Simulated assay, not measured.
Amino acid sequence: MAPQSAGPEFADVTLTIIAGGQGRRLSGVPKGLLEVEGRTVVERLLELAPRFGDVLLVANVPEPYARFGVRTVADVVPGKGAPGGVHAALVAARTPWVLAVACDMPFVSPDVVRVLLGARGDAVDAVGFEVAGRLEPLLAAYRTALAPAWGEALVEDPSLRQLLSGFRARLLPEDALRAVDAGLRSLVNVNTPEDLARHGVTLPST
């Protein structure tokens, strides 16, 4: 008799793709639909989904992503950018933790996810990487219990770094990331036509 599956590796975490709005510098194309090697960035990120207890997409314009069949929510507090997107995820998640990933990050690897989520603990509310003095807030883990306080803080239009300064955040050093991703590929995001060429990303084929 075959052994029963132990379930997802991160059953207490919701994989959340933060899609936000349109890519203004990319002809208004939804950035999650950019393609790498014939697959959209969202499809590539959804390859991580079996490792998680749930999956969620935050998109203020949900129609372009309907084909992926993922539960989708809009910002609860509109006009707050990435902090608002994370807040929407915290409110909508059904698990104790959220892993927030930007929809324009095609190269996030399972090893990097494992390092990030392995740094959680009872005394930690958020975990992220700090590279060259810069926080990477859209490849980061957040405790969903932060939702009420996070929502109140949005009134001040804070940056994600300012928000995290009010919570128990663990920032992992660049070395921790390079140990499993020497070229920091997981942090690549695609915002401009130059980024498309640099990283082998193309506009949607359909």
Rank of each mutant, 00 (worst) to 15 (best):
A169F: 12
D181V: 06
A102C: 15
V101H: 01
A2P: 15
L33E: 09
T14L: 01
V36C: 11
G84D: 06
D54F: 04
D104C: 08
L171H: 12
L135Y: 14
A147C: 02
A89L: 00
V112Q: 01
P64T: 11
H199L: 04
G81K: 02
R198N: 12
L116H: 02
G84Y: 06
T144W: 08
L138E: 06
L184N: 14
P106C: 08
D175N: 13
D175V: 15
V55S: 04
A197H: 15
Y65G: 02
E152M: 07
L139S: 03
P193V: 05
P30A: 08
P96H: 02
A149Y: 06
R44I: 03
L90S: 02
P30K: 04
P83L: 04
W97A: 07
R94T: 13
A82L: 14
A74S: 14
D104G: 08
L160F: 14
D104V: 03
G128A: 13
R134N: 14
E194K: 13
L26E: 06
E35S: 14
L177G: 03
A147N: 01
A176Y: 07
V13Y: 06
R44K: 11
M105S: 10
L46S: 00
I18C: 05
G81L: 05
L46E: 01
V29K: 04
Q22H: 13
P30M: 05
E152I: 12
F129L: 01
L196Y: 04
A182M: 10
L15G: 00
E35Q: 10
M105F: 12
A123N: 13
R114P: 07
L15P: 01
D104I: 03
R134G: 10
L138M: 11
G151Y: 01
Y142N: 01
V188P: 10
Q162I: 09
V115W: 05
G118V: 10
R178H: 03
L33C: 13
R25S: 12
E136A: 15
D111A: 11
R114F: 08
A11D: 14
T40P: 05
L154R: 05
V73S: 02
A145R: 06
E152C: 13
T95N: 08
D111S: 14
G23R: 03
F68M: 02
S186P: 11
V77Y: 05
L203M: 07
F107M: 07
V42L: 09
R25F: 12
G84K: 06
V55W: 01
A169H: 13
T40I: 07
E136L: 15
V190P: 07
V70T: 03
P193L: 09
H87A: 09
A6C: 09
L171Y: 11
A149V: 12
E152F: 10
P50T: 06
V124L: 04
T202A: 13
I17L: 09
L164I: 02
S205D: 15
F52N: 01
D104F: 08
V29H: 09
L48E: 05
A119H: 14
V124A: 09
